[in-house]
């Protein structure tokens, strides 16, 4: 091709049809991306709690009072919901990193659904265990 040849004229790339909200598959993706915002908010809330804890009993009591405000309760519920959604989706797709093996030889395929559900169950069991431990029940 000649060096002076002009580049081929092209129309710009189009996004996937219906992206980002027309199809459930893309809405799920957007929802998954949105979890980061709510998990960030939840993280900030926890950091504020740690700071209040360091500032003494009065600040801690104020922090607990603030948690009882209806708006904060609603936000906490949203954070919890998005965290659960993140866990479910991550474990469902993250299971793909797991390859069943027996020594150096690949073992019989482990049912992927079992891996996903097992991972989700493990996450929730661990979470509940940590909460019970922190709550002094265990």
């Amino acid at each position: 091709m000649s060096e002076n040849a002009s580049p081929t004229p092209v129309a710009p790339a189009r996004p996937p049809s219906g992206f980002p909200l027309a199809h459930a598959r893309y809405r799920n993706y957007v929802l998954f991306a949105l979890t980061s915002v709510f998990m960030f908010v939840g993280g900030v809330g926890l950091l504020l709690g740690v700071r209040a804890l360091g500032q003494g009993p009065e600040a801690w009591a104020q922090y607990l009072d603030a948690l009882g405000h209806p708006a904060v309760l609603a936000l906490s519920l949203a954070v919890f919901g998005f965290s659960v959604y993140f866990t479910l989706r991550w474990m469902w797709i993250g299971r793909k990193i797991m390859v069943g093996r027996v020594g150096p030889v690949p073992g019989p395929p482990i049912p992927m659904a079992g891996l996903g559900l097992g991972g989700i169950a493990l996450c929730f069991a661990t979470g509940i265990g940590v909460l019970l431990l922190l709550g002094g029940v265990l």
């Binding site: 081929t8 092209v10 129309a11 710009p12 189009r14 996004p15 049809s17």
Partner: peptide, 16 residues
Amino acid sequence: VEPLSNFPIVRDLVVE
């Protein structure tokens, strides 16, 4: 019928 998304379109259904 459309050309593949996420690719520039050279002509009709042909993408770069």
